[in-house]
Design a protein around this nucleic acid. Structure first.
Length: 482
DNA sequence: CTATGCCCCGAACAATGA
DNA sequence: TCATTGTTCGGGGCATAG
């Protein structure tokens, strides 16, 4: 959102124009007044505390917007279910270009088909915010002088969720189309097709789409989430030359009256405003990059945008989505994922999807490398994908195996089996020297080391477990070192 | 190849005794 | 209070079955 040009912007994938090209729409919505900035509350930043809002925002919020709204509550409680349109096998067959194509396909809604829950949430997730429809953005702006019914929510979960809402966008918003072009040689053609209101982008990497943590501020103002990439921001070219101007699609008169007077109909101010938004694109993308932990931005952010979910979770997880969940935004910010369970772990599926594909590529090209699967979270490598899959649970907080007696969950089934002795009281491991029993073998072995300690002479000569440096180290560092 | 189970180490925490 | 010991669990390596 720009407080200078009074525009609110966000991007949304539009459709697939060719196997190598995906269109994205930039929607710019006018702010009717300074006070109209208050709808940024609609950003649904659930993590931000109220004290972070300005006094004015709080005042407005208290006056006219009972909280939390139903939508906010729903967003907090309902899991994000991402529809998987590809089988795992298909995923393996795709290459990076296909991935881009998929990104466009999955983002495109099926016209004439009611939005499914998954699709709706996907779109919400992708758009991230602002979660306000163009129609409402006009209706509820205080400047519109429209009487606002008490209790009327400014929010809607259906906003922009499907193509069915597009007419409203076309009517009330200034629509800019961004064309994601994968091949530079097609740039000229794309430019010709794009016209004035299209951004021609160049792509050099398959991991491009990012999103901004909605919980951030920009210049002291609430931040609208934003989807773009640093590559895009670097190469973004709005109205590169005046020569493009003749190709400007004519904006309908239905649109222009809704824009702030400073923007008006297509003229120099419009170009200035667009150039201004370009600056925002770049700024926000840079901020996004800086915010992300190093080495994670591409994977993590990219995962938030589409619905290609690779079912990395075991089947049990489908019954325990509420248990093995993770808040995607927290993944993006690197906070503790395991301790906060709000959204379904499926929100990470895209990340896994990209990661797995990358790993497979690495495996194919790497040949006979010892460690073929690397975790993009921590960089740890594994010989087998199944090992990595289990390892990923430590990052996602997924614990698919739950004890029926105490409800505690575990990342591995063997851990659950091992845990069962806690309830049964069974101590199957007995010390051969003293007869004391233990629940775990490692506990018994640890105990047996104490027996070895009873013989200070032998502890250096005959370790409890020959070849076990840990034993020798323990002995040298404990009582015998005194 | 994946799924599964076993084994292991290490960390965190609690209980206990000097 | 501190060191020691025991308990519990997380997580990696590996073997094996399918």
């Amino acid at each position: 959102m720009c407080y200078s040009c009074k525009l609110i912007a966000y991007a949304k994938p539009k459709c697939v124009t060719s196997p190598n090209m995906t269109e994205f729409k930039f929607f710019f919505y006018p702010m009717a007044s300074e006070r109209s900035s208050y709808p940024v509350k609609i950003v649904l930043n659930k993590q931000r505390i109220s004290s972070q809002w300005s006094d004015e925002e709080i005042a407005v919020e208290e006056d006219s917007q009972p909280q939390p709204t139903d939508v906010e509550q729903r967003a907090e409680t309902e899991p994000i279910l991402i529809k998987d349109e590809e089988t795992a096998e298909d995923v393996w067959k795709t290459d990076l270009q296909e991935e881009l194509r998929i990104t466009g396909e999955e983002s495109g809604s099926k016209s004439g088909k009611p939005p499914s829950f998954e699709q709706r949430h996907f779109d919400e997730d992708f758009i991230t915010q602002p979660n306000i429809s163009p129609e409402e953005s006009v209706e509820h702006y205080p400047n519109s002088d429209g009487p606002e019914e008490p209790g009327t929510s400014r929010l809607t979960s259906e906003v922009f969720s499907t193509e069915q809402h597009r007419p409203a966008e076309d009517e009330d918003s200034l629509e800019l189309v961004m064309v994601k072009d994968e091949k530079k040689e097609e740039l000229g053609q794309t430019t010709a097709l794009a016209g004035l209101d299209q951004f021609v982008m160049d792509e050099t990497d398959g991991q491009l789409w990012t999103s901004v943590d909605p919980g951030r501020h920009t210049d002291g103002h609430p931040d609208f989430s934003f989807h773009a990439t640093e590559e895009y921001s670097q190469n973004i070219s709005i109205f590169p030359s005046q020569s493009v101007l003749p190709s400007v699609p004519t904006m309908t008169d239905d649109v222009w009256p809704l824009l702030p007077s400073s923007i008006g109909k297509p003229h120099a101010d419009m170009l200035s405003a667009a150039a201004h938004m370009k600056k925002h694109v770049r700024t926000l993308a840079d901020e996004t990059r800086q915010q992300m932990p190093e080495g994670q931005s591409s994977e993590m952010l990219n995962s938030n945008n589409d619905g290609n979910s690779l079912a990395l979770q075991p089947s049990q997880h489908q019954h325990r989505a509420s248990e093995a969940t993770v808040r995607m935004s927290e993944c993006m910010t690197g906070s503790n994922m395991a301790t906060t369970s709000t959204f379904s772990g499926y929100s990470l599926s895209r990340s896994s999807f990209n990661m797995v594909k990358r790993m497979r590529t690495q495996w194919r090209s790497g040949g006979t490398t010892e460690r073929r699967f690397s975790c993009t979270f921590c960089g740890k490598s594994f010989q087998r994908f199944s090992q990595l899959k289990v390892h990923l649970r430590s990052h996602t907080g997924e614990k698919p195996y739950t004890c029926e007696q105490c409800g505690r969950s575990f990342t591995k089934q063997c851990n659950l089996i091992r845990h069962a002795v806690v309830h049964s009281g069974e101590k199957p491991y007995e010390c051969t020297q003293c007869g004391k029993c233990f629940t775990q073998r490692s506990s018994m072995k640890s105990h047996q080391r104490t027996h070895i300690g009873e013989s200070p002479v032998s502890q250096h000569v005959v370790p409890a477990y020959p070849g076990d440096p840990h034993t020798s180290l323990m002995l040298s560092q404990t009582k015998w070192s005194k």
